[in-house]
Amino acid sequence: MSLRHALLAVLTAEPMTGYNLLRYFDGTVAYMWQAPHSQIYPELRRMEQDELVEVQVVPRGKRAEKRVYSLTATGLAELRSWLGEPAPYAPERDPSRVRAAHFEFSSYAAARDQLRAHHAHYTTALVAWERMVDDLEAHRVPLLRSRLRQRPEAEHEAIVAFKLFAFRGEAAKARTEIAWAAEGLALLDHLEQHAVPLWGETPDETGQAEATPEPPESGG
C-alpha cells in the first residue's frame, strides 16, 4: 500500500478540500496507515499530475481561494486495480520480538521496562480502536456518514461491515500484543523468583539477581 492509495480511498467518499481531507484522514485511515501532513500535500500534487484527482479552485471568503480535490475515473480505476491485487507482505521487522529473544543479555529491570512500555502502548491503541468500532456501529464517524450519503442504501450494509471488519482486526491485534506482554512479565517474575541469572548477573543471598562487576581490562 502507498499513501496514494490511502488518499484515493478517502476521496471515494466525496470531493473535499485539502484541509477536510487531512481531517478525515486523521480520523479514519491514519489509525491503520499513518503519514505526516508534510507528505500529503506533495502527494496530492503528484496525483493531480497523474490525473488521479482533479482540482477545482473555488472562492474562500472575499479574497482567498481553496482547492477542492475530486476523484477522477482514472483515480478510481487505480484504486480498484490496487484492491484487486493480492496484498504484498513485507518481511517481518519486529524490534519488540528481537529484543525479547535476547533478554538474557539485558537485566530483569530493563526487560520489564520494555514489556511494560509494550503493554501500555497497545492498551492505549486498543482504547482508540474500540472507540472507533463503537463510532462506526453508531454511524458517528463523519467520513462514514458522508460515504453512505453518496451510495445507494442497498450498499450500506457492506460499507459499514467492511469498516468494522478492519477496525475489529486492529483491536484483536492489540489484545494479542497486550497478552504477549503480560505473558512476558509473568515469565520474568518466574525466572527472577527462581534466582535464574542473566548475562553478567548472579543471584545474591536473597535470591535476587545483582550485577556482577566487569573484569578488569587486560594490560596486554
Rank of each mutant, 00 (worst) to 15 (best):
P15V: 08
V53H: 02
G27P: 03
L3W: 08
Y41F: 14
W33R: 12
D26G: 10
R4W: 00
Q34F: 11
K62M: 12
Q34Y: 11
M32E: 13
V68R: 13
H5D: 10
K62G: 09
Y31W: 11
G18I: 06
Y19Q: 11
S38Q: 13
T28K: 02
M47C: 06
N20E: 10
L71C: 08
E51G: 04
H37T: 03
E48L: 01
L3M: 10
Y24K: 08
Q49W: 02
M32H: 06
L11W: 03
R45L: 13
A35P: 01
E65M: 11
L11T: 05
K66Q: 15
E65L: 14
L8R: 04
V55L: 00
H37Q: 07
W33A: 09
V57H: 13
E54T: 14
G27K: 04
E51K: 14
P59G: 10
A35C: 12
K66M: 14
P59Y: 04
L71A: 05
A13F: 00
V53Y: 01
R67D: 08
F25H: 08
F25K: 01
M32K: 06
T28P: 00
G61V: 10
M32G: 09
M16L: 10
Q49P: 00
V53S: 07
R23Q: 13
T28H: 07
A35Y: 08
V57P: 02
A64P: 01
R67V: 05
Y69S: 02
V55S: 02
Y19L: 09
T12Y: 00
K62S: 14
P42I: 00
S2V: 03
W33V: 14
R63A: 11
Y69C: 01
D26P: 00
S38N: 10
P36E: 13
W33D: 12
R60H: 13
V10Q: 05
A64E: 09
K62F: 09
Q49C: 01
E43W: 00
T17A: 07
L21D: 02
